[in-house]
Design a protein around this nucleic acid. Structure first.
Lengths: 299, 299
DNA sequence: ATAATAGTGTCTATCAGACATTATCGG
DNA sequence: CCGATAATGTCTGATAGACACTATTAT
């Protein structure tokens, strides 16, 4: 029809600035578990547009210097103030790209979104870029679109004490936060199209723990089956049968491996000391742990 | 540590060309079924780099003018020479983004890859950009990486006559191609990192037809259960039990709907006339059609 | 003692897969 | 008739989920 494409490519080969540019950024939907509730890592924007509002952590990809994966890891490290060592236990995967021309008022920005699962991380985001970075409870964030039918409604589970991971030293921690009621209602609104990205990330997370062992990425090095169940219950927003879950998890080869040890910190409301497990070497769960009745065929 | 991000953002707001740019392209892994074999839409490159080699169809996203989805649909339409009407039956979804700084020798190019499932399309890519566009049988294309263990080995199925869809008028077509042996061996090598993108697209396709009805996107408006089974067998590269498949497909609500009609063109080797079905209204299959034994837990 | 939890056993409905059977068509 | 296919039926092993039960610990 025109051959203009070949021409454009030719030009691009010799003058990369010949076109109106498109900026490329990475944004990270970083999730963690705190006190049996999902939290999102968010930053306060320090300039226009959306000055002062919350947004996903992210930034520009450094042209010619880094891959998308590297850029996402870098942004996450900067924003959490975490050393690469601590990032080792964080799962990071590409979520998808968002490129509507008007999603950023300044110019056409294509954002490559990433999804991160993190164990309980220290709250302080010292130094670094993100003075205003914080873990926000998900319920405090306004839904992207319609009321999500598969949304993780906090169904008020037994409020386990150590059900969140908590890194290597996660021993006592009698309840770092007073079990304050559901926190502020969903009145925090994310900037840009980040509500949509968050919604996609949540759905991905819910699906991902069905057929991969990534739920363990929310926990510490070792964990009990109950803690693992708490991850599923929180991410899926539905209670699971303790006994069946226990048997199921142990029956899936490669999901978890027993460390001989038992939990030194038993449940605060009694019960025998649980055995401790660590993540196995499986990358896919077979058979999978399917979400409870997604109502025959969702249409 | 520096606050340079805020500064960069500030600059970007007022001078989009202040940085070394990153180009954004879309590339499409378009798959179709011809004569019971998967084919990939590929174009011959008309200029450096990789001049004369095969590559995925794609091109630059038009800054400020179109979304990523729109760009992918546009490129696919240009390359196939298809009107938007014919594209209506094509499934198009985002696959992932690829952004290693050295993946294009000219400059840092981030490519947003898309995956397309198409019914049998006319071979002629008239006019349009792509003088050199063609559907290449997958076996003719060199594997991206290691020998893919889940690769769809052509297991030599019964060579059904009409097992490929074939758009609205797919009646006679007694065997448009002589059942030529497996075509040239895998010696075609795709340019750039397109072998990797193709491999990812194939794996996505194999997984996607497990839990979505998208296998029907490879077929015409109406199809028989056998034709649908041929899609699964070809994409998965493994034979399926005809009887069990039949019963299973009909038992999944919303997968297929019976049109009263029966196939006017019976199997060339006899047998009763099969009933014709059309795609149902389900968007997810429940229960899913799982691939045959992926060997307990893939590690 | 009471309540709550860890872990195991049992039963049942469901499903995937193997196999068989009947009917229908082309050659 | 013979061979291949469509469609349905039957059987078995595996699994998910419901439920029960015992043991252990905090309060």
């Amino acid at each position: 029809m025109d051959g203009s494409k070949a021409e454009r490519q030719f030009l691009a080969a010799y003058d990369p600035r010949a076109f109106e540019p498109i900026a490329v950024t990475v944004d990270v939907v970083a999730l963690t578990l705190r006190a049996d509730r999902l939290h999102l890592l968010a930053v306060r924007r320090g300039g226009p547009p959306y000055h002062g509002e919350w947004a996903l952590p992210g930034g520009f990809v450094r042209a010619g210097q880094e891959s998308l994966d590297e850029a996402a890891a870098r942004e996450l490290a900067e924003e959490t103030g975490l050393a690469a060592s601590a990032l080792g236990r964080v799962h990071l995967e590409q979520l998808g790209s968002y490129g509507r021309p008007d999603r950023d008022p300044r110019m056409h920005v294509v954002s490559v979104a990433y999804l991160a699962f993190a164990p309980g991380l220290p709250d302080a985001q010292a130094g670094s870029d993100a003075a205003g970075a914080a873990w926000l409870p998900l319920e405090a964030i306004a839904r992207g679109g319609q009321p999500d039918p598969v949304a993780p409604r906090p169904f008020e589970q037994g409020r386990r004490p150590g059900a969140h991971g908590g890194g290597p030293g996660r021993r006592p921690l009698p309840a770092q936060q007073p079990p304050a009621r559901h926190a502020p209602p969903g009145d925090i609104h994310l900037a840009f199209d980040h509500p949509e990205i968050l919604a996609d990330g949540l759905e991905r997370a819910r699906a991902k723990i069905e057929y991969t062992p990534l739920a363990t990425a929310f926990l510490g090095e070792t964990f009990t089956i109950s803690e693992l169940r708490a991850v599923y219950e929180t991410v899926w927003g539905a209670p699971l049968h303790a006994g069946n879950f226990h048997r199921k998890v142990l029956s899936v080869p490669g999901f978890v491996e027993s460390t001989g040890a038992t939990d030194g910190r038993p449940g605060s409301r009694g019960g025998p000391r649980a055995r401790l497990y660590q993540a196995g070497d499986a990358t896919l769960l077979h058979p999978a742990l399917l979400r409870p009745d997604r109502e025959a065929t969702i249409r």
